[in-house]
Design a protein around this nucleic acid. Structure first.
Lengths: 125, 125
DNA sequence: CTGCATCCTCAACGATACTG
DNA sequence: CAGTATCGTTGAGGATGCAG
């Protein structure tokens, strides 16, 4: 056994992998980030319309979490009715190329993966 | 509203983003893939030892799911006690550089993110 | 050794109603 | 418009025991 790897993979704290998974592994974060990457600035309800299947609650939770990590910026215009705009921070922008690579990998491999999944029959011998 | 983006983000099916999230967004898949990237070939129990906190059940579930998607190869040696080895397929290897980029991004930004998270106080005005 | 079966828990998520 | 509050559901994940 490799001692270095033991440290890297056995320790739940200080594990960058878990950091990534906790960040973009939830149901909506990655979607919101990629949407903001394309539209630059969006209001709460605009995001909601783009991602039709997200609930208002989860959108609020997701945005707040992204904001608290400094990936997304929240700008409030003090007017009635209120207007709030969201956009990527520089830190958020620095993450996005990697997410986009992942997406393009997924596009390239989606079909193969799905046929693999269908052809997958337990071969236990 | 941008019609192209509507299609991309509103449709749960055919969405590469969901594909990615479903694949590596679970608690263990990414960790297993990265471990196999470093050690090339590992037995069930070796993976289990490296990732000390994963349960036997979840390791089995994770490996089976990765195998069914053609990302990991499973080789059974018909002997008693049984011996089973896991390694990345070429498809799995093609995904890994992107995961490693994500991890290195996480390493670079972990500290900043954590301080952001601590300094984050609701600024609702 | 490498799993599968079973039961159980908890947190993510969703639906709905309400507010400044 | 942009959320919060509340309640209910569901499924991912963990613990334990058993099997080939």
């Amino acid at each position: 056994m490799n001692e270095e790897l033991m440290k890297k993979f056995s320790n739940p704290q200080d594990c960058p992998v878990r950091n990534v998974v906790d960040r973009i592994g939830d149901k909506w974060s990655m979607l919101v980030l990629l949407l903001l990457a394309e539209e630059k600035v969006l209001r709460f309800n605009e995001i909601h319309k783009y991602i039709g299947t997200i609930s208002q609650k989860m959108l609020a939770v997701t945005l707040k979490s992204l904001e608290s990590d400094g990936l997304v910026n929240r700008t409030v215009y003090p007017q009635i009715p209120p207007k709030v705009e969201y956009q990527l921070t520089s830190r958020g922008k620095s993450l996005l190329p990697h997410l986009q690579k992942l997406v393009s990998w997924a596009k390239d491999n989606m079909n193969d993966i799905q046929t693999s999944r269908q052809n997958f029959i337990q071969t236990d011998d």
